[in-house]
């Protein structure tokens, strides 16, 4: 399928999702759906770096929370700014941090990069915790408007629609990369970096592109969060559950194509939304951890691996 026809199908699916959710007639459906979509973006973003180039990022929470906190800063300084612009700013901030971390550590072996991302998450959390302008350790309240600014409906429907659009963009970008020059370069890096370099692939530059893209999308996924939760503190913004989910979803769905993270996010995201309501949130996180370990051992190619040779 050509990229544009794929995007058209994605948009159709997105509209069907939106009106399908509206038919439920309960705003809880939008609240739950928002979280699942947020994970579609996060998992897809993670996979651009992790699945395509093979560099494991444990710092999802940092990129995500940076996006959220950049919205907090904008909310306090430029409250009139429309949310889509805040999302763009969040993406730029997180993308730049991704670029910086990558520049410092991507020359090293992949495991050092992974450890560095974990470290970066804690550094960022410490900085935010000590920054009183954004609430520090006590957290910050953000007032959510009642009405959607662009159509007749609840503000949560607006947030849902934005996250839906972000999902469409992220998935379309991921898929476009797969069969592009960039995608082949990423795959070469994943398989053998030395051979990639000897084949003319500028490995460092490509890895930086992947890190910046991946971090940028994570930041965009986090940017609307303050309006969604209305109360944000460092320990919830930087929660490890974001990192675990974002790694588990692509690995369970399958890392080799765009479909894997989407599948993983929809399945695991929905499961957790259901489990959090019916059982407990800690237990639902335990399920994710166990599934992650079981899948990496038993099904290294993920769910989509079951359907391909």
């Amino acid at each position: 399928m050509r990229n544009w026809s794929f995007v058209s199908v994605l948009v159709l699916v997105a509209f069907a999702t939106f009106f399908g959710t509206k038919m439920v007639g309960n705003s809880y459906a939008f609240f739950a759906g928002y979280v699942v979509l947020q994970y579609v973006v996060l998992a897809t973003a993670w996979n651009i770096l992790g699945g395509y180039t093979g560099y494991v990022n444990f710092g999802t929470a940092a990129f995500f929370a940076l996006g959220a906190y950049s919205t907090v800063v904008l909310h306090k300084t430029l409250p009139e700014l429309p949310l889509p612009l805040m999302i763009a700013v969040g993406g730029v901030v997180s993308g730049a941090v991704g670029l910086g971390t990558g520049y410092l550590t991507l020359r090293l072996r992949g495991t050092f990069f992974s450890i560095a991302t974990l470290a970066m998450a804690v550094v960022m959390q410490t900085l935010i915790t000590n920054w009183s302008f954004v609430g520090g350790a006590r957290g910050v309240y953000v007032i959510r408007p009642d009405e959607s600014p662009i159509f007749d409906g609840d503000y949560i429907e607006y947030l849902f629609l934005l996250m839906l659009a972000l999902s469409v963009i992220a998935v379309a970008v991921a898929r476009a990369i797969e069969h592009s020059r960039l995608g082949y370069g990423f795959a070469a890096i994943r398989d053998d970096e030395l051979a990639a370099e000897a084949s003319g692939v500028p490995t460092l530059r490509l890895k930086l592109i992947a890190t910046a893209l991946s971090g940028g999308f994570m930041g965009m996924a986090g940017a609307p969060l303050p309006y969604y939760v209305t109360y944000l503190d460092p320990s919830s913004g930087f929660s490890l559950s974001y990192a675990v989910n974002t790694i588990a979803m692509p690995l369970i769905g399958g890392t080799s194509s765009w479909l894997g993270p989407v599948l993983g996010a929809v399945l695991l995201g929905t499961l957790q939304q259901a489990a959090t309501v019916t059982i407990s949130s800690a237990l639902s996180l335990l399920i994710v951890g166990v599934l992650l370990v079981v899948f990496v051992i038993v099904a290294p190619k993920g769910i989509i691996g079951w359907f391909r040779r």
Binding site: G54, V56, F58, A243, V244, L285, G289, V290, V293, V296
Partner: peptide
């Protein structure tokens, strides 16, 4: 020969399982 990505994810999963179990 798959220690880098999935091996890392494996230990990350163990970390998380241990932590959540202790919380529970």
């Amino acid at each position: 020969g798959d220690a880098s990505m999935r091996g890392l994810a494996f230990f990350f999963g163990l970390l998380f399982i241990t932590e959540v179990t202790l919380v529970l």
